[in-house]
Write a protein that binds this DNA or RNA. Structure first.
Length: 221
DNA sequence: AACTTGTTCAACCGCTACTGT
DNA sequence: AACAGTAGCGGTTGAACAAGT
């Protein structure tokens, strides 16, 4: 059994103080994002490396947008979630300035509920069968608002069809593409499949290593 | 004003993947 | 090939705040 990364009793936990933030920012500005494990000591922080990394990535990074999500960002998250499931880091990769944590939180607190309200099951992005017919109609018309006016082509990627190499990595949402009847194409995603491109692959190394028959997903957004 | 309930989001935890030896 | 250390990911928690009663 491996020891936890920060079993030190002197290690701070909980909310970061302004002073800690400043130390972390200053250190990373001068040294870059180097070895998180040794960073806290080098920067004079009583934190574990993991905590420093999270704080930097989710909060302190200068390229973070923060603030409310734009409608097109919401749209994109919903579409990407329909395709990828809870693979937040991949989704975040398509939204500049947004972090996986932020997107995950936003999904759980806003978008999930929004879809439910629209009569769409947020787990598989299908119109809920429990809804009365009138609400089905409402749901499908509401769904129009999810897709924008651009014409888009959607093809579920092989990665989503294939069984996940790791149960954690592909949620039931993405794997629901196996279902015979699914409504995802109605989302009208502008997604197409192509062979790997270093700049656009969602997870180039992993995809190439683990599923050589699977084309890497390309998103034209 | 005081209390309860609901919501948000930063941070933590446990796990897997990756990389070096 | 096997192991150990590190990085990164996604689920969960809990404090802070807002809204409702």
């Amino acid at each position: 059994m491996r020891k936890p990364c920060c079993d030190n009793q002197d290690t701070n936990k909980g909310a970061w103080s302004k002073k800690e933030d400043e130390k972390l920012i200053h250190y990373i500005r001068t040294h870059g994002e180097v070895c998180w494990r040794s960073l806290p000591q080098a920067a004079g922080l009583l934190r574990c490396g993991k905590s420093c990394r999270l704080r930097w990535i989710n909060y302190l990074r200068p390229d973070l947008k923060r603030g409310n999500f734009a409608e097109d960002e919401e749209d994109l998250i919903i579409k990407l979630h329909a395709l990828l499931g809870n693979r937040w880091s991949l989704i975040a990769g398509r939204l500049p300035g947004r972090t996986d944590n932020e997107i995950k939180n936003y999904w759980n607190s806003h978008l999930r509920r929004k879809l439910i309200k629209m009569g769409i099951d947020p787990n598989n992005h299908q119109v809920s069968r429990n809804l009365p017919p009138c609400q089905h109609q409402q749901a499908s018309s509401d769904r129009e608002t999810i897709s924008d006016s651009k014409s888009r082509v959607y093809e579920p990627c092989d990665e989503a069809k294939a069984p996940p190499h790791n149960s954690r990595q592909l949620s039931d949402a993405a794997s629901s593409f196996n279902d015979e009847e699914h409504d995802i194409p109605d989302l009208n995603l502008d997604l197409s499949v192509s062979f790997p491109s270093p700049s656009l692959s969602l997870s180039p190394e992993r995809d190439m290593q683990e599923n050589t028959t699977s084309p890497t997903l390309l998103l034209f957004i």
